[in-house]
Design a protein around this nucleic acid. Structure first.
Lengths: 270, 270
DNA sequence: ATCCTCATCGTACGCTGTGCGAGTGACTTC
DNA sequence: GAAGTCACTCGCACAGCGTACGATGAGGAT
């Protein structure tokens, strides 16, 4: 059992000093990353192999390894390239932290929907690239100007980012599945529904709920769901912002009722 | 370029009727799933190959394919097995929907931290298994008893699930990285910090914020962050529950200020 | 004893990431 | 001009992957 080599983020490793070399190298890191991005968008994650990427660049497969030390490293670069698409405009109004958050959330969601292959990567690769940092910084600054400070600032920004990620992930999973079902999405969906109905026979409430569901305009429904949760989160944060500004203590400092504590402890021991 | 076969969820495919066969087949689906789960927990995703799994079961690699048609299908089964660990106790108090949500959130988070390999899977495989449905159903029922109905019910539950997923994902990514860095976590972290400082030189605010950060007790910090966002979300939902019960319209039906609309539209076109 | 079905397994195919060493051409130094 | 250095490219090879396929055997049913 060969232990796998340690993971070192591109952004954490020493970059060799640029020495003068040939004028026109055939390959460049930017070029490779761009080609990889195109390939991923066109055919998805499992279509990206070093050989295919090399072929697309008119180069040998292993030539890539001069510019990039790993496939993981390449993926880190591509991922940060996507973060570059998430642009948050300067919003100078006072208390426009809500707008900044909303623009980020929708931008991030759009990026994830446009590049579905990136979603699993978020669970494996860190997001320390310059573009990811820039996005994060913009959000931080907007929240800071609104009055969030210290840990509350981190908490609030983290909450918005978390919701955005978590809300979009299953959406992308769903779309991936529909896309992969080659047959018409309709027939595939009814097939799935029938099976789920069987599996969910034990839960009559669930069946009742599903039967009233409208699957015709899924896109709109997903958007509404996303917006609902986002606004709910922002409202919750706004309450905390007021507490923060007034330096008033929240009425109940902890979320945990005794019942919750007990259940969480039990789960922890299991 | 061979087009990949379509994806068909385990839960959506026809299961062959059980015919009477040998009394003691050497392998069983449950056994395989359990062994796969152990292997994944012990050595992570990329250590799970059909050959290794077969070896661990004292069987040939391809024998597994009698009980499971795919590696993806096996992973779907293992994933649902993990959902089985997320148990939400019966909370019969009125208005205990908050407790139910909190217990789910902490349970799900714990499961994800315990089985880090599952996080990327959430972006690829659907969660239609019986255990996943059970968890979802319990949450739904608790919210319904509290007064959520119709689409608002879906929205509210979805918001809690989304936040939980999205908040835990980067946590797991982080832990994975630290674990993979073979060298002491401390030295690895300082190394990363140095590089990030260089990369973030353009953002003086960010540097200032990071320097006041305390990295000593990361676990506690992450827990606090998680709880903060969760309670914020629940507060936001509680406001909506009251609107819902009073059938009063929210003061501002949409989150979108003109500035946000413009920005979102621009992103959509890009 | 014969047949039929369930279940297991060995082999093989095409694919993957990537380590290694040889090759190539341009620039620097004499 | 000659020699050397160095950036860069590439072919080969290795170990491993998922899994299609056909052979093989082990029971129960007849």
């Amino acid at each position: 059992m060969a232990t796998k080599p340690p993971f070192i983020s591109v952004w954490a490793r020493e970059t060799p000093p640029p020495r003068r070399g040939r004028e026109h190298p055939a390959l460049s890191r930017e070029q490779i990353v761009r080609a990889a991005l195109e390939l991923l968008d066109a055919e998805g994650m499992e279509a990206l192999s070093m050989r295919k990427l090399g072929a697309r660049l008119g180069a040998g497969a292993t030539s890539i390894y001069w510019h990039v030390s790993n496939k993981d490293e390449l993926l880190e670069l591509v991922l940060d390239e996507v973060y570059g698409e998430v642009r948050i405009p300067e919003l100078t109004e006072p208390a426009s932290w809500r707008d900044a958050a909303a623009v980020f959330a929708y931008g991030m969601r759009q990026a994830m929907l446009k590049h579905p292959w990136m979603v699993p990567l978020l669970g494996v690769l860190p997001s320390f690239g310059p573009n990811a940092l820039a996005v994060n910084n913009t959000l931080m600054t907007a929240f800071e100007e609104a009055g969030f400070t210290g840990k509350t600032l981190d908490y609030a920004v983290g909450a918005v980012v978390s919701y955005t990620l978590g809300a979009t992930t299953p959406e992308v999973t769903w779309l991936n599945m529909v896309a992969r079902s080659e047959a018409g999405a309709d027939e595939w969906l009814t097939n799935l529904m029938r099976q789920v109905e069987v599996a969910a026979a034990d839960y009559p409430d669930m069946l009742a709920r599903y039967s009233t569901e409208d699957f015709s305009d899924m896109g709109v429904a997903k958007s509404l769901t996303f917006d609902f949760g986002l606004v709910a989160m922002l409202d919750g944060l706004e309450v905390r912002l007021r507490w923060h500004l007034d330096e008033s203590k929240p009425p109940d400092p902890s979320s945990a009722s005794p019942a919750v504590d007990a259940a969480v402890d039990a789960a922890g021991r299991g």
